[in-house]
Design a protein around this nucleic acid. Structure first.
Length: 140
DNA sequence: GCCAACGTTGGC
DNA sequence: GCCAACGTTGGC
């Protein structure tokens, strides 16, 4: 058995939200057209991995909930690009905004908090994942 | 809507 | 292989 890994996956709310995923239960994550992100999905993303569901270009942007990888990387049609399936896990009561991520010292090295980080599928450490989950589950 | 940061394309 | 031009992402 391989170790569970963690990812942050970005999507614009105009396209798909955590509420859409809660309704659908599961969805295919296709249309990624960046080689680095593709390589993660092709080589490293495994069934059962944890996903921070991130709303980009939003007001505000941030992590809106959790998902899990339901199917590891498989070829899109046409081939050359890869997709995965993700399944709904939970919706946070409130978004964990990018500003919050940036102001959390333990997340200073998290990829999404770095300037100019555009990668739509990013690796996240277990520690970072757990911190975001803890913040996300807090009721205000 | 602006624009900085980044990735890709294509001429040379 | 360099690099300018162009297109896209995404925070603000």
């Amino acid at each position: 058995m391989t170790t569970r890994r963690y990812w942050l996956m970005k999507c614009e709310p105009d396209v798909y939200t955590i509420d859409d995923l809660a309704r659908d239960g599961k969805t295919s994550w296709e249309g990624v057209r960046n080689y680095q992100a593709r390589n993660f999905m092709r080589d490293d993303v495994q069934e059962g991995d944890g996903v921070l569901f991130y709303a980009s270009n939003a007001k505000p942007s941030g992590v809106t909930g959790l998902a899990t990888i339901a199917r590891a990387g498989y070829l899109e049609e046409p081939p050359a690009w890869f997709m995965v399936d993700i399944a709904f896990v939970e919706r946070f009561p409130e978004i964990v905004s990018l500003a919050t991520l940036k102001s959390t010292k333990a997340l200073a090295k998290m990829m999404v908090t770095q300037k100019g980080s555009r990668l739509s599928v990013q690796p996240v450490t277990k520690a970072e994942y757990e911190i975001v989950v803890r913040i996300g589950r807090q009721r205000v």
